[in-house]
């Protein structure tokens, strides 16, 4: 079975999915990521799906689960690089990827994580940080 590599860049874990994943590979990625977040103490995860030519409900659910898990582990997940055809198909399929933050490319994704992190630091001694997120920024 293939494994999707996870790279650590500074305070961010970068996952660039380059293969047509089998369901098992996707589940494995979910497990690997959770472990790496804890092991590295990273506060941001970027999942680059530029190379994916489809996202079906299984992969969609995996992305949502990763986002929720990383939230629990105090890391922000941003899914980047979704192709237009994939986005149109997901809308038609009825999958809204609730709770997942998205960005056009890796660079914007990093900005998003940096901004979220900065917010948190600023708000550290104020009220609870606003944890409500949507697919938009």
């Amino acid at each position: 079975m293939e494994r999707v590599p996870i790279l650590k860049i500074g305070d961010i874990l970068l996952v660039s999915i380059q293969v047509d994943m089998s369901d098992q590979t996707a589940v494995q990625l979910q497990d690997d990521l959770a472990e790496r977040i804890v092991a590295t103490g990273c506060h941001g995860v970027i999942i680059d799906i530029t190379a994916l030519d489809i996202v079906d409900s299984f992969v969609g659910r995996m992305l949502s689960t990763i986002a929720s898990i990383s939230k629990v582990l105090d890391a922000e997940t941003v899914v980047v690089g979704m192709r237009p055809a994939v986005a149109i198909t997901l809308v038609e399929l009825g999958l809204s990827l609730n709770g997942i933050r998205t960005a056009l490319n890796v660079e914007r994704g990093m900005e998003l994580i940096a901004a979220a992190h900065a917010d948190e630091r600023e708000l550290a001694f104020e009220d609870e940080p606003d944890t409500e997120t949507t697919a938009s920024s």
Partner: peptide
């Protein structure tokens, strides 16, 4: 078309 390809492949996957 690319979008139709994506749609039918996604449907097939499901």
């Amino acid at each position: 078309s690319l979008v139709d390809q994506t749609k039918v492949v996604t449907a097939a996957s499901e």
